[in-house]
Each structure stands twice: as structure tokens, then as C-alpha cells.
């Protein structure tokens, strides 16, 4: 797991480069913590449509829903990140993205905040303190203006 984290971090470091270009992350909250995913990976933010549970599905997949005729696989980030499950609130949203396989993926989150711009200096490799369980999904830690933002690697989250 540690290796995965390190390679994710070094991947990130390489991509950002020395000059430290600024990247945009969409910030959202989940079980009281703040998380971010790279904005370019998110196509749309949706109020959750009715979701159909899929029996026998992998644990992190809640089910499927339809967005204007497109069949979307909905992933519960709480389950992926081993967080306590709660019923949806009215602030809950689905972040719509497209996996590398072409599959439409919806990430279920508690609440969407805003977009943050992070320079390379504001991102540090994931702390091992996060625990081995979820470090495989973490790209790094963002620290904009004193906040603590867990940056998720979307492809790993989809791979679940």
C-alpha cells in the first residue's frame, strides 16, 4: 500500500513539475472531512436521481441511475473510504465523471463546497497517518489557507 501511495504522490509531483502550475480541485465534504477531486475529471454535479440498488454488486457500488438516458454507476464514497454510512440528506450530490473504460461514474458525496486552486507547494504526499485502508485512493493532501483537504485519485476510487 505504501508503495502505491508513494508512486501516486510521485506521479503527482511529476505532473505538477518544478514551476508549480496551479490545479483546480472540486471540494466536497464527507462525514465531516473535506475532500477534493480534480475538476477536469468531473463533468457535472447532480442532485441524486432515484438510485436502483444492484444486488451482488461490489461493496462500494450503491447501484445505478439514469441521467438523461445515460446509465450511471453510482459509487458510495463513504463505503469506498470505509466511513460510517448515513442516509442521504438534501445537500447530497452526485459528481458525474467518466472512467477510463468509458463507464459513466457517479460519486455520491455529502455536500459540494467550492472549487479550490492549489499550487504544487500547497500539495503534499499523503500522510501515512490516514491509515493503510484508504491510502490507495489518495493522491495527496492539499492545504489551502490552513484547511486540510484529502485529494482523491479518481481512477483508483473507480477501480474500488
Amino acid at each position: 500500500m505504501v508503495n502505491v501511495t508513494q508512486s501516486a504522490a510521485s506521479r503527482l509531483a511529476r505532473r505538477i513539475g518544478d514551476r508549480g502550475p496551479v490545479r483546480e480541485f472540486l471540494m466536497f465534504s464527507l462525514a465531516g472531512d473535506l475532500y477534493g477531486v480534480e475538476l477536469t475529471r468531473i463533468k457535472e454535479i447532480l442532485s441524486p436521481p432515484p438510485i436502483t440498488m444492484v444486488p451482488r454488486a461490489p461493496r462500494n457500488v450503491i447501484g445505478v441511475c439514469s441521467v438523461r438516458g445515460l446509465l450511471v454507476t453510482v459509487i458510495d464514497l463513504r463505503r469506498t473510504l470505509r466511513l460510517e454510512e448515513r442516509p442521504l440528506t438534501r445537500r447530497a450530490r452526485i459528481l458525474l465523471g467518466v472512467a477510463e473504460s468509458g463507464e459513466a461514474i457517479g460519486l455520491l458525496v455529502d455536500e459540494v463546497r467550492h472549487v479550490v486552486r492549489l499550487a504544487a507547494t500547497e500539495i503534499e504526499p499523503a500522510a501515512t497517518a490516514l491509515g493503510g485502508d484508504i491510502s490507495e485512493f489518495v493522491l495527496g493532501i492539499g492545504r489551502p489557507a490552513g484547511e486540510f483537504l484529502i485529494l482523491l485519485d479518481l481512477p483508483s476510487v473507480v477501480a474500488g
Binding site: T52, V54, P55, R56, A57, P58, V61, V64, S66, L71, V72, T73, I75, A99, S101, G102, E103, A104, I105, V158, A159, G160
Partner: peptide, 15 residues
């Protein structure tokens, strides 16, 4: 057809 992350689920032809 169900997406790739559900391709291992048996018993369903799609949605």
C-alpha cells in the same frame, strides 16, 4: 449494458 465495474455481477443482462 451495465458499466464495467458491474461486469462481474451475475444474473443481470443490463438495466
Amino acid at each position: 449494458p451495465l458499466g464495467k465495474s458491474l461486469s462481474g455481477v451475475r444474473g443481470f443482462a443490463g438495466a
